[in-house]
Design a protein around this nucleic acid. Sequence first.
DNA 1: TTGTACGCGTTATCAC
DNA 2: GTGATAACGCGTACAA
Lengths: 338, 338
Amino acid sequence: MSKKATIYDIAKELNITAATVSRALNNNPKISEKTRELVLATATKLNYKQNRLALALKSGKSKNVGVVVPFINKNFFASVIRGIEDELYPKGFHVIISQTYEDTTREKKIIQNLLNAQVDGILLSTAFTEQNKEEFRESLKKNTPFILFDRVLRFKEISTVTIDDYQGGFKATEHLILQGCKRIAHFDVDQSIELYKHRFKGYKDALAKYNLPYRHEYVISLKSNMEAGKDAAEKLMNLPIPPDAIFSSTDNGLLGAVKYLQSQSVRIPEDLRVVGFSNEPFTQFMEPSISSVDQSPLEMGKMAAQVFLEQIENDSMDKVQSNVVLPAKLIVRKSSSK
Amino acid sequence: MSKKATIYDIAKELNITAATVSRALNNNPKISEKTRELVLATATKLNYKQNRLALALKSGKSKNVGVVVPFINKNFFASVIRGIEDELYPKGFHVIISQTYEDTTREKKIIQNLLNAQVDGILLSTAFTEQNKEEFRESLKKNTPFILFDRVLRFKEISTVTIDDYQGGFKATEHLILQGCKRIAHFDVDQSIELYKHRFKGYKDALAKYNLPYRHEYVISLKSNMEAGKDAAEKLMNLPIPPDAIFSSTDNGLLGAVKYLQSQSVRIPEDLRVVGFSNEPFTQFMEPSISSVDQSPLEMGKMAAQVFLEQIENDSMDKVQSNVVLPAKLIVRKSSSK
DNA sequence: TTGTACGCGTTATCAC
DNA sequence: GTGATAACGCGTACAA
């Protein structure tokens, strides 16, 4: 009773062979209408359900995909995963998630694990940087499709999905300039990560376009957390000529800065305007609400899923490589406008 | 080259049989040290990796668990999943996630899918309520362990992990009373869902303990979003005697109310104090910061995972049922204190 | 200590 | 149209 019914059980019940049952279940044309109905009937009667594992072993397709991110309980990644699952579930795929904790050793193990589990593809936002790019490359030497998103590394034959970080940095900075700001500081995170490099370049190019001087003392590298943001803000305000705006590549860092500045009676936006990056949910509800660049995580997830689906369409043939770049949307709120 | 190496490949290489290879790989005592080393050597040489699928089919254990939630891009669920993954990954399990979108039809299909995929267990927060409890029960008739968390339904033999919602409701209300509030309103969501019923009961009992009257016009049922919160707040303020506090079972509903009240120049906490439920990240950064009951999502996930692990320990034997109840922690912030 | 044979549940390729 | 058989990759009684 409790054991799961197999095609053998239903074959035995009907005095036919398992092969015939299989054919009936799979709409194989070579079968009589009568036996098909008989099979279907007893299948429901015995509460038969196909064993995906057996099918996977047989076909070589597990219908599972691995999704690898630093942490899943971060709004951005959770939303990307949502986009992926939204897109892949209807196609019959199951989404396996793993967290790297931003530890590259762990990331390598996870990839290996996923590969051993015979996933049909891996979508991941990597913890590796330009410095250890080659070490990461070794993990990719497989016939399994890899799709990199957000935090990517560029390789021939590996598809990527990112937003236009350069454009995001440029737009944010330009917006501050157009609001009348002349001394715009920048919170950077890590220049060995492509996306921060691009945001930084967007910042610099915007300054240049409007003939504003670039001052290195206005650029601070920090961890993406409140504490670091507070320290950075303190440092900036102690400068002989403090800035009148901050474009931060990290919302969390900016958050710490804003809280500190408010404690020091610096008025935002009157005394200093700020724009962040990521459009974290809290930016919307703060007082003042914080302007930020949206990363379209849902769309990013959907695109990554679609690229994966395309990849497994062309039967192993020419591995087309896609490099999707989503637009960066600046969300203007009170923190940067009058 | 590109094909994955199997134990047969390494057997052929060494002119031994696959069985021997298998033994060597699994630390089977019945094998000579020499051949073990030989096997291990050529295994790494051929870059052999165990195929989890084949093992799963053979052993009947997929080492996959399904986690089912309404939406993954909601902080609470994302954090629960994090707790689950943190706990299960080290034990060699992969976590498959699925979203119900709070659609019971979809939830049933997802469960069936997961079962077909031979998951070793399913951890889920259900969209079913007391009204269609029996329909949900049918999905559970399996030998596969089910662990229900947060939004649960009670069945014999089905384990649950929840927080003490009654205590949360009681503490929040008592806190407001001790702050001097006498007319405390309550935002409820849906009384056919156990957790909201418990929070509501905690609210009522706290009122009773301090001899405050219960007034039905102060209790409003609403959807868990800003729009509904705004409407509810409006309704409350139009009462002949408006409340001087709100205990809301939903942070999101309360958020809408607070934004509306502020637009009406109602001062928080001076004119009206509020406490929410869930400790959503944004509550911490708002102005004023919002008091809320924390649900310990990480711990909930870890506990759910542990209960699952215990469940599969006792080999099919007496299916022990656990009902873990985590404490509810009231986080007091500016919105409810002087 | 090692080899042989079989089964896990399915589908595909042959025959008949 | 249906049956028998092999194969996917692995682990394990049983025999040697």
